[in-house]
């Protein structure tokens, strides 16, 4: 029987929620095609990650545990993933559309002579067969595409698939004897400068407080207290990142992260198409901007035309008081 192979991303021994969205995609694809799905865990000392994945209905959890896989360097990871896909006879390889997925999966596609679709948001029946829906032109259009090769590779947009729930069961964990060949990859990991934060991940947060260029050097002073009260993640427009008020990891939009929280605050953000591409599927959008003509108000459920430097602290204070 044909199989889907899901690439599980993890951080500090914990499976990322975005990968559970890839599992959700696989369940939908499996329901339409009769396929089953397996999960791949690559890295070093990844036993706990594999163990945490046994309750998601996979046929097997394949573990490639190797020192050369400690950092997700594309040529090395791609080789191991393609070897594994061939070994288990996978017809579909899927990962979340994170920077890791986008970096590595195209190389897997070449190795498997597969066509690849990026950033999939849905499965559609087209007149030429089962297709995939994906945003194009910064989300101004959506395309229904079909991959014509027998083997298919794709990344899925986590914001479009609710993370799969554990269903119980006990998938077997199988060791995969990876041969990463790191030297041949001619790629060397040098360093990683991570953003330290105790806040929820942007991809996982129920509430996001996003700030734009208008906040200037008061970006943190305005966004942090509100995020504290709401237990929210903090995001930013590209302009706020370009100007150095927020780290690149905060960027939301066409070239940043795509999010769909329950509640999104766009504070001093004008609402350029590239920003909207990353947040317009949020459930409730609040815009606070001193200029009532900005395009952000065309997508906001609640708009407040006000100076953020006074309105946001007032909002923060009042919400805090309400929460006791």
């Amino acid at each position: 029987m044909s199989k889907i192979l899901i690439v599980a991303e993890h951080d500090k021994g914990i499976v990322k929620k975005v990968s559970l969205s890839a599992v959700a995609f696989a369940r939908q694809w499996a329901a339409k095609t009769g396929m089953s799905y397996d999960i791949a865990v690559l890295g070093q000392n990844v036993g706990p990650v594999a163990a945490a994945l046994t309750a998601y209905g996979a046929g097997a959890i394949h573990v490639a545990d190797h020192a050369d896989l400690a950092h997700p360097l594309a040529p090395t990871w791609a080789k191991v993933l393609a070897d594994l896909a061939l070994d288990i006879g996978a017809d579909v390889v899927v990962a979340a559309a994170t920077t890791l997925g986008k970096d590595i999966l195209p190389r897997v596609a070449v190795r498997l002579e597969a066509g690849m679709a990026s950033d999939v948001i849905g499965i559609v029946q087209t007149k030429e067969g089962l297709g995939l829906r994906r945003p194009m032109w910064a989300g101004n259009l959506v395309g229904d595409v079909i991959i014509t090769t027998d083997t298919k590779v794709l990344t899925v947009r986590a914001a479009a698939f609710d993370a799969a729930e554990a269903t119980g069961g006990n998938s077997p964990i199988k060791a995969f004897a990876a041969q990463p060949d790191a030297a041949k990859s001619r790629t060397r990991f040098v360093s990683f400068d991570g953003v330290q934060s105790t806040r929820p991940d942007l991809a996982e947060a129920a509430v996001i407080v996003a700030g734009g260029r208008g906040l200037k050097d008061k970006f943190n002073a305005v966004t942090e207290p509100l995020a504290d009260v709401l237990g929210a993640a903090i995001g930013a427009s590209r302009a706020a990142v370009d100007d150095g008020f927020a780290p690149n990891d905060y960027q939301i939009g066409q070239t940043g992260k795509v999010v769909a929280p329950q509640l999104y605050f766009a504070i001093a953000i004008s609402g350029a198409v590239q920003h909207l591409a990353g947040m317009k599927n949020s459930k409730v959008i609040v815009a606070i901007n001193k200029n009532g003509d900005e395009p952000i108000f065309k997508v906001a459920d609640y708009g407040l035309v006000a100076d953020a430097f006074s309105a946001v602290p007032e909002l923060t204070q009042k919400l805090k008081a309400l929460r006791g």
Binding site: G115, I285, F297, K318
Partner: peptide, 28 residues
């Protein structure tokens, strides 16, 4: 030959603009 073909393009259904609130109290 391309391996991926666009079968159909369409415009996603847009979001409707909501309401303007007059102040922070109304927003809350």
């Amino acid at each position: 030959d391309p391996k991926v073909k666009v079968v159909a393009l369409s415009t996603p259904s847009g979001r409707k603009a909501g309401v303007l609130v007059k102040d922070v109290d109304e927003l809350i």
